[in-house]
Computed example of a mutant assay.
Amino acid sequence: MTDPKTPAVRAAGEAAVATELDKLASAETGTAVATTTAPPTLAELVAQFRATESNISAGVTLSVAAQIRCGELLQAMQERVAKEIGSGHWGAWVQLNCGVSLRQVQRYIRRAKEFHALDQKVNDGATSMSLLAQGTLLKLEGDAQKKRRTARR
């Protein structure tokens, strides 16, 4: 039996999750996600993000999977912007290219990070949890945080 903590097994699991998210996001948004061996360009990442985000904003797609996909795309864009333009230009670049507020970008990135942290806990525990169950847990956690913030006011 393979050890779920080895880097190769973890990478394979992350690739499988990314593929699953791509399938869900493309099925919900009606957009095809390009599967190329070369990493996508910054322009391609922006186009994929805008397509997914516009469907979320319009209410076509309300799923956690699409929000996670937006966060993943934004994380990839953030890395690219830091390398190509400079790390101090992220906020201005988002305003010019993404069509959403910096705060919304932060929410999407946080959702993706929360998902991957939960996925890592599942992998470390060698337990199985479906993408739907993980999304439900993330949604419940987000709702609980919102209630706590509202209660403090």
Rank of each mutant, 00 (worst) to 15 (best):
A133I: 05
N55E: 13
Q120C: 07
A144G: 06
H89T: 08
A151M: 04
L102N: 15
A32M: 05
D22V: 02
L131F: 01
M129T: 14
L45E: 05
R148V: 08
T36V: 06
A112T: 07
D3M: 06
N97P: 03
C98Q: 01
A66N: 15
L62T: 15
G142C: 05
K147P: 01
N123S: 09
Q134T: 08
A92D: 14
A47C: 03
A12I: 01
C98F: 07
G142N: 11
H116R: 12
L138F: 03
A43R: 03
K146V: 03
G99D: 04
W90H: 00
A34Q: 08
G88D: 14
A117P: 07
R10N: 04
G91V: 08
I85S: 08
S87E: 13
Y108D: 00
H116C: 04
R153M: 05
R50D: 07
Q106R: 10
M77H: 00
L96K: 14
G71D: 14
A34V: 09
I68W: 03
L118P: 02
Q95A: 08
Q78S: 08
Q106P: 01
N97S: 08
S130Q: 05
V105S: 12
N55A: 13
A51V: 01
E79L: 13
R153W: 04
T37D: 15
A66I: 07
E79D: 13
Q145M: 09
R107N: 14
H89K: 06
Y108L: 00
A65D: 15
W90L: 03
A112E: 11
A51G: 05
Q134P: 05
I109K: 10
A32P: 02
Q78V: 04
K5M: 07
E72V: 04
V100R: 11
Q95C: 11
K113S: 15
G71R: 09
V105L: 03
Q78P: 07
T2M: 08
L21C: 05
L137W: 02
S101C: 03
V60K: 14
K121Q: 14
A8Y: 05
V46R: 08
A25L: 03
A126E: 14
